[in-house]
């Protein structure tokens, strides 16, 4: 089993999304890309996970039990581990027309996330974002 060889250096990614199918697909892809995945379905559980240990990267859905769950989690993550990259997944763009991206320093500071991706996830984009953020 070739995967076992790298188990020791597998990087852990924390993902939180309240849609069980998106969570499962994300977990599946990330594991296939060689990450160790911790998948939770609520803001509450994600908070517990953050407090329990430091992930290499975190991916949060914006709206879970609260409208701004993703913001709260980003803030919390950055406060505890300033060097952990955070990706926010949001359907805000498609559902409300309200748009923001994280390309400017100013919005990054405000939303505390390093990248914002649309809920209609394009996995190539997700993969390249993760690679970019983990390199930096």
């Amino acid at each position: 089993m070739k995967a076992d060889i790298n188990t020791a250096q597998k990087k852990q990614i924390l993902i939180a999304d309240d849609d069980p199918d998106i969570l499962e697909q994300m977990r599946f892809r990330l594991e296939a890309w060689g990450f160790d995945v911790c998948a939770v379905e609520s803001q509450k559980k994600a908070e517990e996970k953050i407090k329990a240990g430091k992930p290499a990267l975190a991916i949060y859905d914006l709206m879970m039990e609260n409208q701004d769950s993703g913001f709260v989690l980003s803030y919390l993550t950055k406060k505890m581990y300033p060097d952990v990259p955070v990706i926010l997944i949001t359907s805000v763009t498609s559902e409300t027309g309200f748009h923001f991206d994280s390309s400017t320093e100013e919005t990054r500071e405000w939303i505390k996330a390093d990248a914002v991706l649309d809920k209609d996830i394009r996995y190539e984009q997700l993969e390249s974002e993760i690679n970019r953020l983990l390199k930096g």
Binding site: E24, R29, A32
Partner: peptide
Amino acid sequence: AVDSYLQLLKKHVAGEELSKYDHIVER
């Protein structure tokens, strides 16, 4: 949801071992 699970299967995202796909088939 089913569509994206089938895409994962079609592209053999988790390799050739069938049991790896059990959970997504179940879902």
